[in-house]
Design a protein around this nucleic acid. Structure first.
Lengths: 218, 218
DNA sequence: TTGCTTATTGGTCGGCCACTCAATAGCATC
DNA sequence: GATGCTATTGAGTGGCCGACCAATAAGCAA
């Protein structure tokens, strides 16, 4: 696709074109990195001239920020769907940790590392990152609160617990680009273990396949 | 410094010049970021022509990797001096956590985030990062082993414990560029708390000023 | 002092970047 | 089918980048 020989212009509504550009940029952000979002690259992917991208986003930084926001929101919705109706909070967390520890999460980790670094130089992006961090914390805190109300979890501050869990996940994610560790259970399980400890659950309660059986320590 | 009107060439030994270039690049890495290490920037700082930097580092990526290695090693030596003779392992850890939680650590956090992100595109740097990660782990594991031998700590795998502690530190460091959280003790203390738990120490044993008094939970 | 080695310069090249703007043409409306 | 609005193009600007290389001169050895 993206036939180079295209002659005829395709004229779209501003809303459609803009959405198309953002979606394309979000895809680039995940697969190639936020700095790969350039007028030329996006133009090439959508078979439009770079100037058109500039027309919708006079400053590229705004597009980068929006692309990150879109990508991060999509990932969060995949990990912890908002307003979940099926399953218990425990099951939601179990599924969350299973995904957030798997290799498929590497792409998301890379995106976050990318965004956090680039935030150093890009104020608009920095603002978006802060927004997304808040969103992820709140989403996770909501699950914890739901579990606490049902009596599944014991916690005196769902928000702080959510932050603690995310700190561990961020720490594990730090190596997504360098690819060390990954095979020691005592390390891999740290995120779930933190949740279990902070929520008053038995060891292994949030492990992938074994709902109640503690794995034992040594 | 760096007088623009300099006419006379200053001819140094290759070893000196090379060291000078690396030192300058390391300084730039910490203060401005690894991508700010350019032939022109380094040349400007040392008042030499960009071509000379190229002469010593035909590929800039090699200079970037070396600059990171230098900076990271220096920081590690500041946090956990090798072959420490004064003080106990507990004191070393206490000092380590105090520094690694303080604001002065932000510069180091930024550098690591920077390096880990850039590793995605730069194989040589990626190798260096892996090297440094190993060095940091080993250095911390050594302190833990020393404490275990003295009977201060209880652990069955000093290395895994070191990795766990560094995971938490990396997680806390993730926000160095976005500057959220930082004020909740339950979060700030996570690294030290992890160490205390894993090493069989009472709560607060590795806290900054209070050597033995647990702070209490609520 | 002279000569020689080589550290250092100066200039150039191609490449990719964001950004600007007048000219063009798609398409809805009449 | 003609008209007008505006989405889209095309072309150009200036900036910064790494890399390359022949010419130059610093300073040691003779």
């Amino acid at each position: 696709m993206a036939s180079r020989v295209q002659r005829k212009r395709i004229r779209k509504s501003p809303a459609d074109r803009r959405a198309e550009i953002v979606a394309s940029a979000a895809r680039v952000a995940i697969s190639e990195g936020l700095e790969a979002i350039t007028l030329r690259r996006i133009g090439e992917l959508l078979d439009i001239r770079p100037g058109l991208v500039s027309h919708y986003f006079p400053a590229v930084e705004d597009l980068v920020a929006e692309a990150f926001g879109n990508a991060a929101t999509a990932e969060l919705d995949g990990l912890l769907p908002p307003g979940q109706r099926t399953g218990t909070p425990s099951q939601h967390l179990t599924r969350f940790f299973a995904q957030a520890t798997g290799e498929a999460y590497d792409a998301i980790s890379r995106l976050w590392i990318n965004a956090r670094h680039l935030s150093r130089y890009r104020p608009v992006l920095r603002e978006r990152v802060a927004e997304q961090e808040a969103a992820w914390r709140e989403r996770l805190a909501d699950v914890i609160r739901a579990g606490a109300e049902r009596g599944e979890f014991r916690t005196d501050d769902a928000y702080v617990t959510a932050v603690q869990i995310l700190v561990v996940i961020d720490g594990l994610a730090a190596h997504a680009n360098t690819g060390t560790d990954s095979t020691v259970p005592r390390v891999t399980r740290m995120a779930a273990a933190t949740a279990e400890r902070e929520l008053g659950l038995p060891d292994g309660a949030l492990a992938d396949s074994a709902p109640g059986a503690p794995r034992g320590r040594g």
